[in-house]
Design a protein around this nucleic acid. Structure first.
Length: 522
RNA sequence: CGGGGCGUAGCGCAGCCUGGUAGCGCACCUGCCUUGGGCGCAGGUGGUCGCGAGUUCAAAUCUCGCCGCCCCGACCA
C-alpha cells in the first residue's frame, strides 16, 4: 500500500480554499488555479474541492478553512454570531467539564445571573461603564412598547452580580463569596472572527468577594494558575502568565493578570484573564459587611474568565495543512475506526462485527471511539475526512488484519503507522493517546521557545518583529508613553509583565526598568 | 471607522464587456459497480441570478440607490 502517501500532507497544491459566497482570491496575494468553465483541474478535482489553504499561503484563510472544514462552526445570519456545530461544541463540552471540575475543586460553586442588566446598574462603576459602553447592545423595546429604562445585554456580569452581592452580604461570616457562572455574553465588535472574537460568546466568569486585599490577590493568582494548568494539561497549549500593564487592564480593575499563548503565525492570544478588582466594585455597588472589629467594611472582589476563544487557540496551536489536530483530552473522538470492507465474494464478512467488538472494548476502557460505518464513502475519503477533523488516532481494520488478529493504528500528529495486535489493544491505545497528548505540548513548547527572542536594543526589537514576530523579551521602564510608542512603531504590545522581576534597561529610553514580554496581539 | 474584494443551486465558479429569460464541477437522490489514501458508469433533483428602483419590446447582464459578507488596517477581549 502507498506508504509514502501516508506521510504527505494531502493538499499538495497551494489552493486557496474559500468559503461562503465571497473571496475569489482576487486582490489577494494567493495563487489561483487556472479555471476553465466548470473544469476544475481534472485529475485532482476532489482534492481541489476539499483542500484547506496552506498555512504558509495565507494564515488567516487557513484558520477560517479549518474552522469550517473541520465542521466546528458555521456563520449565523447576524454578523459575528456563529453557530457552534455539534463537533465544535463537543470540544467545548470537554473543555467545560474539566474547567468546571477545576473551578469546583478550588472551592467555587455555580449559579446563574440574568442576561439583561438595567442601564442604571451598569453605570455605577465609572471606568467599567466607559470601558464597555462602545460594545454594549441595548434592548429598548419590550412587548411592543418602549422600555422606561434600556436594558443592556451583558457584556460581562460584574454589574449584575455585584448588585446582588450587595443584597446578600452582611457579615464577615458571609465571606468569602466564591461564585462562578457559565453564560453567554455579547460585545458589539467591529471585526469578528470565529471563536477568536465573536459578537456573542460562551464563557465562565467567576466573581468572588473577600475580607482582605491579600485574600483577593491570592484568589486572583490562584485562578490564573488554574487557567495555566488547564491550558497546558488539557489543551497542550503552553502559556505565559503575568500581569497586564495599565493600558491592557480590565476596565475597573486594580490589577489584571492573563495567560498568553503563541499562535502559529507568531501572534499572541490572550487565553484567559484574572482580575483583582480591589474595592472599586464594592464601593460602586454598595457591598458592605460588618467586620470582625464591629466596623462596616468593604469587601475586595475578583473576577476571572475563559471563553470559547480558547478553541481558536487550540486550532492555531496544533493545526497543520491537513486541518485540525486535537489533543486527546479534548477530542470528541479520540479514536475513529475505519472499517475496510471485504471484497465481493470474499467469505469474510466479519469486519464490521469485529469493528463493533473493538469499539466496545475501547469504550469499556473509557476511550471515546467512533465507528465510521458509512458505506457510501471510500476508506481513503474517511482518512482525509477525519484527519481534517483532527481525530488523534485512526484505527483501520480490514480482512487482512482479521487473519492476523491485528489492526492498523495511525497517529494524526506524526502520521506514524503501527500494526497492533487486537489483544491488549485498549492499553496500547491508551498509551498512544497519552504520548500524543504530551507530544503536542512538547512541540508547542518548542515552538514557543524557538519563537521567543530576548533583545537588548530597540533595533534588535524591530528586527525581531519584522522577521519572525513571536514573543520578544525586552526591558521597559514602566512608562505608558513608551509602551504606546513601541506599539505605534512595531505593532507589538506588552502581553505580560512576568511575576518574577528581572531588572533590565528600557530598550527605548535606556532608563532602569524590568523585563516584559512583547508580541503582536490577536 | 478607513482601504480592498465579492454577492448567480448546499459549496466552488462561469456567463455580464457586446441585453434575448441560466450553465459547469463537487455535493445530493436512484440504480449498477467498487472499497487498504479523497472509486467508476448511467440517469436525476435543485436557482424569483443579494434587495429596490430605473432604462428597454426584453435585464443575471446597462444605470442609480441600498443591504450583506470576506480580507487588510485602526480600535477593542
Amino acid at each position: 500500500m502507498a506508504e509514502p502517501a501516508l506521510r504527505r500532507p494531502l493538499p499538495d497544491q497551494p489552493v486557496p480554499r474559500h468559503h461562503r459566497r465571497d473571496d475569489r482570491g482576487v486582490g489577494r496575494a494567493v495563487p489561483r488555479l487556472p479555471q476553465q468553465a466548470g473544469v476544475a483541474v481534472s485529475n485532482e478535482k476532489d482534492r481541489v474541492m476539499k483542500a484547506i489553504t496552506p498555512k504558509g499561503t495565507d494564515y488567516s484563510q487557513w484558520y477560517l478553512d479549518v474552522v469550517l472544514k473541520a465542521d466546528l462552526a458555521d456563520y449565523g445570519p447576524v454578523k459575528g454570531c456563529m453557530v457552534i456545530k455539534p463537533y465544535g461544541y463537543a470540544i467545548w463540552e470537554n473543555m467545560q467539564a474539566d474547567m468546571d471540575r477545576r473551578i469546583k475543586e478550588t472551592g467555587h460553586v455555580n449559579a446563574y445571573f440574568p442576561l439583561l442588566i438595567p442601564r442604571s446598574f451598569l453605570e455605577k462603576e465609572k471606568a467599567h461603564v466607559e470601558g464597555f459602553s462602545p460594545e454594549c447592545a441595548w434592548v429598548t423595546i419590550g412587548g411592543g412598547e418602549e422600555l422606561p429604562e434600556p436594558l443592556a445585554i451583558r457584556p460581562t456580569s460584574e454589574a449584575m452580580i455585584c448588585s446582588m452581592y450587595a443584597k446578600w452580604v452582611n457579615s464577615w461570616r458571609d465571606l468569602p463569596v466564591l461564585i462562578n457562572q457559565w453564560a453567554n455574553v455579547l460585545r458589539w465588535e467591529k471585526v469578528t472572527r470565529p471563536f477568536l472574537r465573536t459578537t456573542e460568546f460562551l464563557w465562565q466568569e467567576g466573581h468572588t468577594l473577600h475580607e482582605t486585599e491579600a485574600e483577593a490577590e491570592e484568589e486572583t493568582l490562584k485562578m490564573l494558575g488554574v487557567y495555566k494548568s488547564f491550558s497546558e494539561e488539557m489543551l497542550a497549549m503552553p502559556v505565559l502568565h503575568g500581569r497586564k500593564t495599565d493600558s491592557e487592564k480590565f476596565a475597573g480593575a486594580l490589577r489584571t493578570y492573563s495567560i498568553e499563548a503563541l499562535m502559529g503565525d507568531g501572534k499572541a492570544l490572550q487565553a484567559g484573564t484574572s482580575h483583582n478588582l480591589g474595592q472599586h466594585f464594592a464601593t460602586a455597588y454598595g457591598i458592605e459587611f460588618l467586620g470582625r472589629n464591629q466596623e462596616r467594611e468593604k469587601p475586595w472582589s475578583t473576577s476571572w474568565g475563559t471563553s470559547t476563544r480558547m478553541i481558536g487557540g487550540l486550532i492555531m496551536t496544533h493545526g497543520d495543512d491537513s486541518g485540525l489536530i486535537l489533543p486527546p483530552k479534548v477530542a470528541p473522538y479520540q479514536v475513529v475506526i475505519v472499517p475496510i470492507p471485504p471484497r465481493k465474494g470474499d467469505v469474510n464478512e466479519a469486519v464490521l462485527p469485529k469493528c463493533r467488538e473493538v469499539m466496545a472494548a475501547l469504550r469499556g476502557a473509557g476511550i471515546r471511539v467512533h465507528l465510521d460505518d458509512r458505506d457510501q464513502q471510500m476508506p481513503g475519503f474517511k482518512y482525509a475526512d477525519w484527519e481534517m477533523r483532527g481525530v488523534p488516532l485512526r484505527l483501520e481494520l480490514g480482512p487482512k488484519d482479521l487473519e492476523k488478529d491485528q489492526c492498523v493504528l495511525v497517529r494524526r500528529d506524526s502520521r506514524e503507522k503501527a500494526f497492533v495486535p487486537l489483544a491488549g489493544l485498549a492499553q496500547k491505545v491508551g498509551e498512544l493517546l497519552a504520548t500524543i497528548q504530551s507530544g503536542l505540548l512538547e512541540n508547542a513548547r518548542k515552538f514557543v521557545a524557538d519563537n521567543t527572542t530576548r533583545v537588548s536594543s530597540y533595533d534588535e526589537f524591530k528586527q525581531a518583529m519584522a522577521e519572525k514576530r513571536g514573543f520578544i523579551v525586552a526591558g521597559w521602564n514602566g512608562d505608558p508613553a513608551i509602551e504606546a510608542q513601541i506599539k505605534a512603531e512595531t505593532r507589538a504590545t506588552i502581553r505580560v509583565i512576568p511575576m518574577e522581576e528581572r531588572p533590565a534597561a528600557c530598550i527605548v529610553t535606556g532608563k532602569p526598568g524590568r523585563e516584559v514580554y512583547f508580541a503582536q496581539a490577536y
